[in-house]
Write a protein that binds this DNA or RNA. Structure first.
Lengths: 160, 160
DNA sequence: CCTTGACTTGTTATCATATTACATATCAAT
DNA sequence: ATTGATATGTAATATGATAACAAGTCAAGG
């Protein structure tokens, strides 16, 4: 299991967060994005755990940190992160998760564990290709896609 | 294009609905399900168009037909249909669409057109297999999955 | 420097989606 | 007929998301 998504692997999580923040900052620099305090803090909040957070969870955290406490504060920061490839929206959960591959083109498949609520982002190139094929045969022009699977992660599976 | 999902193909829609209702009734008979008036009417409402309907849209229609007009009325009927394979939930839209292959094992991929809001259910066996492969390599036990693509249907694509 | 225009943030209000809890009614088998 | 399971009606509430506008910040050109 060397190619395990980080969310399912034992790892030094604070290093993981730090690394992601650095990559986000480099990306922002690179693309001329303004990674303002709210946006940066929002990303940090998402990175704290490999779980998807609802907008209102994020909002509460932001408010506790002295930012505005009205929904648009959270939604705007989250939308910014999603639009710029720093976070993903998990449709199934109406929630958001930090992107684990910022700046790299990738086709994520999300594995959502019902045991521990961990959300892992796995590479889904093959899956994307299969959808593209299906789309072509029906003449559909795909713009965006979301691929999510619900089930048990390795740890929870073993525990059960 | 002979294998076009019916939603994208010209077809006799009233025959399409009638056929689906008959199949639903046969399936209910078969599995001993109680396709009560609300449930039946809910399925008819979903079948009226190849669009996904929000629970409240369905609720309004049901209320107009003399059924209760509180959210649980719609959600319960919709949940029943989903649980028994007569409808699907489209996560991306927080909405519901009638299943076009009731009683047949299938792995649907949903194509959601941003031009005309049509939702087509296409066979995604290959896609499902690709996800299963990805899941196996990370040790994840998939229970359910949702695969949705947003873009333009053949007709809207041509119009653009 | 200081003005201007684009972008960002704060805040109010409102809308949309979904669930909990409990009462009542119906069904299907004894 | 009685009973237990299932289904429906309704009120109240929780959760998720957006519209609209005011105020603040920033960077570029005058």
């Amino acid at each position: 299991m060397t190619n395990q998504p980080i969310a399912f692997a034992e790892h030094d999580h604070s290093a993981c967060c730090g690394d992601m923040m650095r990559r986000a900052e480099a990306l922002a620099q690179d693309k001329g994005l303004r990674l303002t305090p709210v946006r940066k803090r929002t990303l940090e909040i998402l990175l704290e755990s490999h779980h998807a957070l609802g907008a209102y969870d994020v909002l509460n955290r932001l408010a506790a940190d002295g930012f505005g406490n009205q929904p648009p504060v959270a939604y705007r920061a989250l939308d910014f992160l999603v639009e710029n490839g720093l976070a993903h929206r998990i449709q199934r959960l109406n929630a958001f998760a930090a992107c684990m591959h910022p700046g790299q083109p990738h086709r994520p498949v999300f594995f959502i564990c019902t045991g521990c609520d961990t959300v892992a982002e796995a590479p889904g190139t093959g899956v994307g290709a299969a959808i593209a094929t299906a789309a072509e045969t029906v003449g559909f022009a795909v713009e965006r896609m979301n691929i999510e699977a619900v089930g048990l992660c390795p740890a929870c599976r073993e525990a059960a």
